[in-house]
Amino acid sequence: MDNLAKKFLEEDAANRELYVQGIIFKNDSFLAVLNQKFNDYLFRVNLYSYIKKTIFYAARDLKQRENELREKEGLYLNILDADFGEEKINTIADTPIDFAEEIYKDQEDIDYREIFTDKEVLEAINTLTDRQKQIIYECIIKDKEEELVAKELGISKQAINKIKQAALNKLRKQIGGK
């Protein structure tokens, strides 16, 4: 409280004069004005303190929610700009993939040419969207877990499953249930 009273007296020369008249010379009218001004000063200090703490805790909560959201959604493409300390969205060009070429290019343990010798199957695959081709390739041909593919592509496991099922249904219709 001593420190607060010192700052109050240093704030304004009129406050020091009120202090001298009210406390030292024991003048009740000056003392009443001094008390009123000091109470107003205390109110301002408490109000500023409350506002400062509110802003601090709101900013901390916002930052915490942002970090939780970032961790949950996994913003894989975004990068931190060192000059500004802000996040920039890094974009990657979406190039079309020739699915048949991809299959023949990546031959780990399986000879994919034996699997897709039927021209009707290859034509059906080429009617799929690039995203569907990619997910079918990763999940079925490469036999990857849906969770792993979801992490690699930056989307949810449910989205992978939905796209895969839509692609398989489309292939079944095109091939005629073979």
Rank of each mutant, 00 (worst) to 15 (best):
A93D: 09
Q134T: 15
E101D: 10
Q132R: 02
Y137E: 02
Y137G: 07
N126H: 12
T95L: 12
E114W: 07
A100V: 14
K133Y: 05
K133N: 13
Q107P: 00
A100K: 12
E102M: 14
E101P: 01
Y112G: 11
K119M: 03
P96H: 07
P96C: 01
T129N: 06
I97C: 01
L122K: 06
D109R: 12
Y104I: 12
N126M: 06
E108K: 14
I125T: 01
D130C: 06
A93W: 01
A124C: 08
T127K: 13
T117Y: 09
E102K: 15
I136G: 03
D109Q: 09
R113G: 13
T127Q: 11
N126L: 02
L122S: 08
D94R: 14
Y137C: 01
R113D: 11
F99P: 00
Y137A: 03
E123L: 09
Q134N: 13
I115M: 10
T127W: 00
T129C: 06
R131K: 13
D94P: 02
K119I: 07
Y104V: 08
E114L: 15
T127F: 07
I115D: 00
Y137I: 01
I97Y: 02
K105N: 08
D98K: 14
D109G: 11
Y112A: 12
T95H: 04
E102V: 07
E108Y: 10
Q132H: 03
A124S: 15
E101T: 12
D109Y: 04
E114M: 11
L128P: 03
E108A: 13
A124F: 05
E120V: 12
L122V: 14
E101L: 05
E108P: 04
D130A: 07
N126G: 05
F99S: 00
E101M: 05
N126V: 03
Q107R: 13
D109S: 11
Q134E: 14
E120M: 08
T95G: 06
D94L: 14
T95D: 09
D130G: 14
D118Q: 06
D98E: 11
R113F: 08
I115A: 08
A100C: 06
D98Q: 09
T127C: 06
I135V: 15
V121E: 01
Q132A: 02
N126R: 07
A93R: 09
I97M: 05
T117G: 14
K119L: 08
L128T: 04
F116D: 00
A93M: 07
Q134R: 14
L122E: 05
A93T: 13
E101C: 06
K105I: 01
E120D: 10
D118S: 06
K119V: 09
A100N: 11
I135W: 03
Y112S: 12
Q107D: 01
Y137F: 15
T129W: 11
L128Y: 05
A124V: 10
I136V: 15
V121L: 05
D109C: 06
D111T: 10
P96S: 05
I125R: 00
Q134L: 14
K119N: 07
I103Y: 02
A93V: 14
D109M: 10
N126K: 11
Y104G: 10
V121K: 02
I136Q: 00
